[in-house]
């Protein structure tokens, strides 16, 4: 897996104050479990995303730990409350220096 990869965020671009918004965050990643062997019989080292965090105007609103049992290209769907206009930042980090960052803006009225 490369040091970074494609990610995609799906969420509303605007919402009423106090509304619950659904956020979908998907990252391109092989999620190599570390339990598989190559055709030559060698153990393929673990290479997974370890942590996913979402900050809303620099306040952490969601965090998830990832484990080897999670499949490739993991998708996370979660909700948060639209409190103020601003930026949500999504960050995936994992083995072998993997890091991917994505952002989305929301206008709260």
């Amino acid at each position: 897996m490369s040091k970074t990869s494609r990610t995609s965020i799906t969420m509303p671009s605007s919402a009423k104050k106090g509304a619950i918004i659904e956020i979908r965050a998907i990252a391109q990643h092989d999620m190599e479990s570390g339990f598989r062997y190559s055709e030559g019989g060698k153990l393929i080292p673990r290479d997974i995303i370890r942590v996913f965090t979402c900050t809303y105007n620099d306040v952490e609103v969601f965090k998830a730990d990832f484990y080897p049992g999670i499949g490739a290209n993991p998708l996370i769907i979660f909700t948060t409350i639209a409190t103020e206009t601003g930026t949500l930042e999504f960050k995936w980090s994992g083995d072998d220096g993997y890091e991917a960052i994505n952002q989305a803006h929301i206008i709260v009225s």
Partner: peptide
């Protein structure tokens, strides 16, 4: 937004 294959299209 759910289809992982879209990464390959990108």
């Amino acid at each position: 937004s759910l289809n992982p294959a879209m990464f390959w299209v990108g």
